[in-house]
C-alpha cells in the first residue's frame, strides 16, 4: 500500500448559502447600518454604520506586517503609533494624520489588508458568527468598503482560486517541494512565485509564507495554487493517524458479568 495518496477535492461547503450571501447576519447588519465588531471563526470585521472599516484574520498579515516587512515604515514607528492608540486601525489613522506615510500608500495598504483579512473572515466556518454592538468603530479618514462589495469580492476570489486549481488542500497545509516529473515541461516560475517557492520547506503554510514575505495572504494563495497546478509544490501528507491511545489503566479482561447483569436489570426495571 502506498503511503502517499492524493485526497479527493474537498466537497463544497455551504454552497447554497454562498449563492445568496456569505453571511446572512452580515447582510442584516449592513441593512440596519450597524456599528460594532463581527467575530467569525477565521477573522473579525469591524463595521461602522454598516460599512467595513477594518478586518483582521490570523491567516492574513496585518497592515503592520505589510508596512514594516520591506521598510516602508520602521517597526519602531508602528510600535509607537500602536502604543498610543486602541486598535491597528486607529494606529493607521494616526500615521496618516502625522504624515509619516504618503496618503496613497497608506490607503492602498489599508484596502489591501482589509480585503485580504476579509476574505478569510468570510470563509466558510463551522461555528456561527457573533456580533457585538460597540461604538468604537467609526468612519474615519481611511477608506471603508460596503459589506456587499467585500462579500462580492470574496466570492470572486474563491472562484479565481478554484479556477487556478480546484483543490484547496494546499491553502492551509504545510507545503513541500514536489518534482514536476512526468509532466510536460513546467511553466516558467515567475519572480513572485520564486519568492514563494524559496520559502516552501515542509513546515510553512501559505499563511506563514505570506507573513514571511510581508505579502497579502490571498496573493500568496494565488501563487500557491498556480505552483500546485504546475506540480512544483504539494500539501505535505498528513501525519499518519496516531494509534488509538492505550488506556493508562488496563481494563480488566474479565468484566464482572454479574454486576453488568444486575445493572441491566435495574435499568430495565425503571
Amino acid at each position: 500500500m502506498s503511503a502517499v495518496r492524493t485526497p479527493p477535492p474537498a466537497l463544497p461547503v455551504r454552497d447554497k448559502r454562498a449563492v445568496r450571501a456569505l453571511s446572512p447576519m452580515l447582510t442584516r447588519l449592513a441593512e440596519e447600518r450597524a456599528t460594532g465588531v463581527l467575530v467569525r471563526e477565521h477573522g473579525v470585521l469591524h463595521l461602522a454604520e454598516g460599512r467595513v472599516v477594518h478586518a483582521e484574520s490570523p491567516l492574513a498579515p496585518g497592515l503592520d506586517v505589510l508596512l514594516t516587512a520591506h521598510g516602508t515604515l520602521a517597526g519602531a514607528a508602528w510600535q509607537r503609533a500602536a502604543a498610543r492608540t486602541p486598535s491597528p486601525l486607529h494606529a493607521a489613522e494616526l500615521l496618516l494624520s502625522s504624515g509619516v506615510l504618503p496618503t496613497g500608500a497608506l490607503e492602498l495598504c489599508h484596502l489591501d489588508a482589509l480585503y485580504d483579512a476579509g476574505y478569510f473572515a468570510l470563509a466558510p466556518s463551522s461555528t456561527p458568527g457573533r456580533f457585538r454592538y460597540d461604538h468604537t468603530p467609526r468612519l474615519g479618514p481611511l477608506p471603508s468598503v460596503p459589506v456587499v462589495a467585500l462579500e462580492h469580492e470574496t466570492l470572486r476570489r474563491r472562484l479565481l482560486l478554484h479556477r487556478l486549481w480546484p483543490d484547496p488542500a494546499a491553502d492551509s497545509a504545510p507545503l513541500i517541494r514536489a518534482a514536476p516529473a512526468g509532466r510536460t515541461p513546467a511553466a516558467p516560475v515567475t519572480p513572485r512565485q520564486r519568492a514563494v517557492l524559496d520559502r516552501v520547506d515542509g513546515l510553512r503554510t501559505a499563511a506563514d509564507i505570506a507573513r514571511n514575505l510581508g505579502r497579502q495572504a490571498f496573493h500568496t494563495l494565488v501563487d500557491v495554487r498556480r505552483l500546485t497546478a504546475a506540480g512544483q509544490i504539494a500539501p505535505a501528507p498528513a501525519a499518519p493517524a496516531a494509534p488509538p491511545p492505550t488506556p493508562l489503566h488496563q481494563v480488566t479482561t474479565d468484566p464482572d458479568i454479574a454486576l453488568l447483569k444486575r445493572l441491566r436489570d435495574a435499568l430495565e426495571a425503571l
Binding site: T103, Y115, E153
Partner: peptide
C-alpha cells in the same frame, strides 16, 4: 499628498480622459 481618489480625479483632468481606475493585477480588484 494625494490619496487614491485624488489621484484618479487628477488623471481624469487629462485631455480626452474617459475613465480611470486603480487595479490590483493579482486579484483583478
Amino acid at each position: 499628498m494625494p490619496g487614491i481618489d485624488e489621484c484618479l480625479l487628477e488623471a481624469m483632468r487629462l485631455p480626452g480622459a474617459r475613465g480611470a481606475a486603480l487595479v490590483d493585477w493579482t486579484s483583478g480588484l
